[in-house]
Amino acid sequence: MRLASVPISAWIGMAGIALALVCALFAPFIAPYGETQVVGDVWLPAGGDFLLGTDNLGRDLLSRLIFGARTTILVALAATVLSFSLGMALSFTAAVTGGLIDQLFSRFNDLMMAIPTLIFALVVLAVLPQHLWILILVMAVLDSTRVFRIGRAVALDVAVMEFVEAARLRGEGHLWIIFREILPNTLSPLLAEFGLRFAFSILFLSTLSFLGLGIQPPAADWGGMVKDNKDGIIFGISAALVPGAAIAALAVSVNLVVDWMMKRTSSLKGGRGDA
């Protein structure tokens, strides 16, 4: 792969992701003020000391945005990694073992997917106590159903290939078949899928926080910041739009990179990449 063949849209996406990551990693060094520090009046306009103005409690919006990047990305990434590990482990086991285990896993997955994710999350979060790790776990479990379905389809595509049969005939164990024969041949579509799930997790987390069920105040996170500042909208105060735009920008960035990766994998399969 040559760098020149990477399209401009993918570069934009990667730059966006890099910016968000830098904010997340070095938040305390970059942010001009503290995360929960009240620095001025309520809903001050942008400019002057406060580059993006202040929020509904008089905290610096830019600082909260930078700290929010940390929470949002950390939680979304943790949920995605967890959901991916869970979904991949189960789906590959199902695809390689086949038979009853496959039937059992697949039918249960169908059942989980019969309830829309957001509705499922609302029902479950209504019962469970509000902890960060519970939130991550719920997001991961619900999202792993999607990973399972795709992981199983991708693994089955490869598992029916003759080189896998050849490995079986040789007497190789499940672990060799999964890690040495199937996994290396599914990496690119799965990488794209990981990006997709990450973008989804960011949006999902933000939605939950916006509905008041995600990350709890006073910690800053982008969805919650929209919720905090939404009452300003009718007075023409755009403080709620700033974190909203941040969410959108990050999700667009991830999707741009994913779109490029998907085009690459589809051309790997010999397709023209437009179907």
């Binding site: 829309p116 994710t117 957001l118 509705i119 619900l142 999202d143 999607r146 379905r149 795709i150 389809a153 991708v154 579509p189 997709l196 799930r197 973008a199 989804f200 949006l203 999902f204 933000s206 939605t207 999707n255 994913v258 779109d259 998907m262 085009k263 589809s266 179907a275």
Partner: peptide, 12 residues
């Protein structure tokens, strides 16, 4: 499922 159709935003 592997078609390049992206998952819906939220609501999943």
């Amino acid at each position: 499922p592997a078609a390049p159709v992206h998952d819906a935003a939220t609501g999943g």
